[in-house]
Nucleic acid binder design. Structure first.
Lengths: 243, 243
DNA sequence: GGGGAGAGATGCCGC
DNA sequence: GCGGCATTTCTCCCC
């Protein structure tokens, strides 16, 4: 245990990334309050002061502290405590350690940012570029427009020159998608002083209740898949290679 | 590098928790698609097949795979690849490794669950137990009631026997809190065939736009803090100790 | 910094 | 499993 404590201490002093596993108890007081009884967990202290505590299962850390947290090792007989305090937020987490299985520190260098495709913005871009995916005769007006009343995904005119607001969802649209759309339609009607504004939810599918609420409000649903650029590219390439 | 690869291989075979840091590139294809250029990261493989990739900064993993992921080590000259595949979800993540700084495995035993107080449910419980926190003369009807139209936090009658729907938020209430409340009020009016249903948002604060929308709909806002049991206990104890 | 909305959201509970 | 919603949500973007 002693040598591993020294490793952690050195890692904290040099602001390296630290990973260790410990038999421990945890308490947290901050935005909420949590306690976690004794068990074995993996703890990570990052170079920016982020602290993560992971149980052996599950996606999420069971406890965490945000960047800027100050960690100190204290001896409180008979065990050692890692005190993690975020002064500005008034958050504190205490890890009371009974045993440490391993402890490693490393200075990580990483200037890369993740590149992502296939999110909702890609979807609204796709619809803006080709509104006939929604219905024939649509002409695009704007996309991702920040209004005082909210963020409208795609705005179009239909073949009869009526304003159409399109709300995109990458997955199944729910009640909140409809209430969101409803808010935009109402506010646009009010601000432009026009009576006829159509609302469309564009998503791969929609929940039954959301569909009912859409009908109630005279809106409509269009089933449309979110784009996957690389996958599409791959398919196109394989199609080309058939010839 | 060789010995660390063996450590990882052994950890995968025995389904232990694995932690290692590596100079690597990452690609992911699944619900979306991501790429991440070469850099140094911390990788965790959990006992349930969860995989997390952490950059040296920030709260969230830059890439992750859910429980049930199968990981295999493959050599693809000149580097080793950790292939992480979640068959059921059709997700795949590839970690191409150029160097490994350390690798550790450990079998973690942890049957504990985190105990949390101060969440929204505690807040609605508090209001239900003491509705006068909202206004005098309120009598509670139900809490956390699941209706077809949504989940109503607290339902009361006021001193004039009018139905009151209370929507709680632990932090600043926003537009979606108001639209949520509005949905409940409309649906309760409709289903009970009554005209007078009041709506109240209970939260520590509220955004300006949300306040405007509340007014538009004849709802009201009550400023109320979420409970913090331990903090309250501590204060009560310190008050007792004054005597 | 506040406000609004998405997230490869995840997790929880109820039907 | 779906549905609705909270999360110690976090993160991003825009005003």
């Amino acid at each position: 245990m002693e040598s591993k404590l020294l490793t952690i201490k050195a890692g904290l002093a040099s602001k390296h990334t630290i990973a260790f596993s410990a038999d421990c108890e945890i308490s947290y007081v901050g935005r909420a309050e949590t306690t976690l009884g004794r068990g074995e967990r993996l703890v990570i202290v990052k170079q920016d002061g982020t602290v993560l505590v992971h149980q052996p299962d599950g996606n999420h850390p069971v406890n965490y502290m945000k960047a800027g947290t100050e960690c100190t090792l204290e001896f409180s007989s008979p065990s050692w405590i890692l005190r993690c305090a975020h002064i500005a937020d008034g958050d504190e987490m205490l890890i009371t350690m009974f045993n440490i299985h391993f402890a490693e520190t490393v200075k990580l260098n990483d200037g890369q940012k993740v590149q992502l495709t296939g999110n909702e913005r890609d979807m609204s871009d796709m619809i803006y570029a080709n509104p006939s995916l929604i219905e024939p005769g649509l002409s695009p007006v704007s996309k991702e427009e920040q209004t005082k009343y909210g963020f409208i995904d795609v705005l179009c005119y239909d073949k009869d020159n009526a304003l159409v607001i399109v709300e995109c969802k990458r997955f199944k649209a729910d009640l909140s998608a409809v209430t969101q759309l409803r808010r935009y339609v109402e506010k646009i009607k009010e601000s432009k002083g026009i009576d006829k504004v159509r609302g469309i939810v564009a998503a791969p599918s929609i929940t039954e209740n959301a569909k009912l609420m859409l009908k109630d409000w005279g809106f409509s649903f269009v089933s449309i898949e979110p784009p996957k650029f690389r996958e599409r590219l791959r398919k196109e390439q394989s199609r080309l290679s058939d010839f």
